[in-house]
Structure formats: structure tokens, C-alpha cells
């Protein structure tokens, strides 16, 4: 199945939880925030929120910056 991940097409074998997605990408869940279809997913819900065909997922973190 195909999703859009951080703006790019991304292939997944089957629907999976946010926890499983982060783990498969090697991302430390404590350092990121996740949005699924324009809605923020609360950390506490990572285990029960499924990523499915056609979903738009954004995974963000903090980077250096001050203005604009």
C-alpha cells in the first residue's frame, strides 16, 4: 500500500501503527511529533493509531532556527 510520508510517496507492506512505522524508520518516538491527515497524533495514541492506504503522514522534529 502507498502513503504520503513527509510529502513523498512511501510504500508499506500493510497497515501498521504509528509506533511500528517510527520503529521501521529508525526514528526515536520521543524526539518527534506525528501528524496523520492534518491531525496531530498524541504520543499516548501511537500504539493504537493505524496508518492506512492513502494516508498523509508528517513526522517532524526540532531543528536549529530562530526566525523565519
Amino acid at each position: 500500500m502507498r502513503i504520503r510520508l513527509n510529502g513523498d510517496p512511501h510504500e508499506l507492506a500493510a497497515p501498521l501503527t504509528i509506533t511500528a512505522l517510527l520503529s521501521s524508520l529508525g526514528i526515536d518516538a520521543r524526539r518527534v511529533a506525528v501528524e496523520r491527515n492534518l491531525t496531530v497524533v498524541r504520543r499516548a495514541d501511537y500504539d493504537k493509531t493505524m496508518v492506512e492506504e492513502g494516508d498523509e503522514v508528517e513526522i517532524v522534529n526540532f531543528v536549529g532556527g530562530g526566525h523565519a
Partner: peptide, 29 residues
């Protein structure tokens, strides 16, 4: 200390994280 929010680089996970250099016990993010 102010920080920006950007997409995680999915392809390249090797880069250091800003948060390794900001002691959150000392600085308010």
C-alpha cells in the same frame, strides 16, 4: 532557546540531533 520545527529526514537518519546540544534541564525550549 528557540527552535524550529521541520520534517524529519527519512532518507538520512545519520545527522546529529539539535537536542543533543541543548540541555533541557537548563534551557527552556
Amino acid at each position: 532557546v528557540t527552535v524550529a520545527v521541520r520534517r524529519v529526514n527519512i532518507q538520512d537518519r545519520s545527522k546529529e540531533s539539535l537536542l543533543d546540544y541543548v540541555d533541557r534541564g537548563r534551557y527552556f525550549l
